[in-house]
Design a protein around this nucleic acid. Structure first.
Lengths: 247, 247
DNA sequence: CGCACGGTTGACCTGTATCAAGCCGGGTGG
DNA sequence: CCACCCGGCTTGATACAGGTCAACCGTGCG
């Protein structure tokens, strides 16, 4: 079954085992039977590594698979005719990318690794095949897509109604929270993306991002040393986001 | 409060027939066999009417169903702790809403009818049941969700990188194009939403929206009479969007 | 060492928000 | 039927957040 592996490498190193993957609670539905888990393993045909700075897929690429991130962080970005570019998200271990490609059989955004990364390749055909038989997987796929839609609603709220500092605060809190879930510090993080990429994501220019960082540092909310950030006063940041003022 | 009443009207008038619905090419996958089409009919349990100004569902409502819009236009909007509100989209005939509810079994946005509307109620359980057997439907559901993700990417690009007039131009062109597909004029439209709602969607204040309308009218790109808009120079609007200038 | 690149900071400019006044069309009540 | 009002919209004057331009800094690398 999983001998359809496309990679000509040592099979053992490739041999996938979702069942024993420590990310499975992020990737997989819960409450699968042993037998189901066994079958779900076969959704992943192979793994693929992506070097820092190179793309997992690009706008226009033919779509085949979804990808579960094992290690590394990606950015996804769309562009318009003119050179404008918008980072639409930063994805990390356990998250699924490639959903954009399903509608038109071609990808509509670029996925670029911000550090050396490894992904599990899951051809949509296989996912669908299995989803027809394992209803928990079927629902899970729907949830993953729904989650992405809801996430994007949040970004729209951010872009449409928050001011620069609120955006950065929301961004930092979101990042650190997601990292925390993955076992990293709840208050410390290393940004894998440049200020420019942060700016693109937040709809701000690089100088504005930089100033917001400096302001937070000045006010003792965070400590910044290049891309290393320590959150000193998460409450204040949270207040900044929700409470913003009383409009 | 969304009432779950199964409209107590003549059953025949309710009896759904996707097979003969003139929106089926928007809602349904193509190339279904007669038998499959017959079964797909059963995805819709009933129809529901929604009066102008009232909600199909609200944030926090328990999630059961997706809805295919038969007539009318909806807006969906999310809010944050503080009163901020963001319109995340305007949906019209043939489009599917409710996808946001899947991930947490509760809706995360409000869907409000901007004019008297009618929707087909499609419980997710039924959809999934049938999708397990009709693979074209399965793929179709995935495409619908993927399309929504891609659409939102476009909105993020708009909110993150366009200036006021570009946003409005993009908005108008998008609306008129979608209406055109549905058999309306390719150059004339009646806005069902207020300037305020447009502003919320585009991340602009009402005054800015109004000024942009006036400017376009002054320049002869459009003709505006209250909510009635006629597009006089679509090319110029398109240029405004893509070409914006040579940054 | 020196260069390059990403980031910071300052000075200034501009697009959009804000505040305020007024307009228009539609509905209501005298 | 008109006077009035009301909500949605427009328009003008002004304020300000964030963009732009430019100089500079610091770190890492050839």
């Amino acid at each position: 079954m999983s001998d359809l592996t496309l990679q000509p490498v040592n099979p053992d190193s490739i041999k996938v085992a979702c069942a024993t993957c420590n990310l499975r609670e992020l990737c997989l539905p819960m409450g699968l039977t042993k037998e189901e888990l066994e079958r779900v393993n076969n959704v992943v045909t192979n793994r693929r590594t992506v070097k820092r700075g190179s793309s997992l897929f690009r706008v226009g690429d033919k779509f085949f698979s979804l990808y579960a991130i094992r290690t590394g962080i990606f950015k996804t970005c769309v562009g318009s005719e003119d050179g404008r570019e918008q980072v639409t998200g930063f994805q990390m271990a356990g998250e699924i990318i490639g959903l954009d490609g399903i509608v038109n059989d071609h990808h509509t955004c670029d996925a670029v690794a911000l550090e050396d990364a490894e992904v599990c390749v899951m051809p949509l055909d296989r996912i669908e095949e299995l989803a027809r038989e394992v209803t928990a997987l079927q629902r899970h796929v729907h949830k993953i897509m729904s989650r992405e839609i809801v996430r994007e609603h949040g970004v729209m709220l951010l872009l449409g109604s928050m001011r620069a500092e609120e955006r950065l605060a929301a961004f930092l809190l979101n990042l650190v929270q997601r990292l925390h879930i993955r076992g990293f510090s709840p208050s410390e993080l290393v940004l894998r993306m440049s200020r420019e990429e942060i700016g693109s994501y937040l709809g701000l220019k690089i100088e504005t991002v930089s100033r917001a960082f400096s302001k937070f540092a000045e006010e003792g909310l965070i400590e910044v040393k290049q891309r290393h950030v320590r959150i000193l006063n998460a409450d204040a940041l949270t207040r900044l986001v929700n409470h913003s003022e009383c409009r």
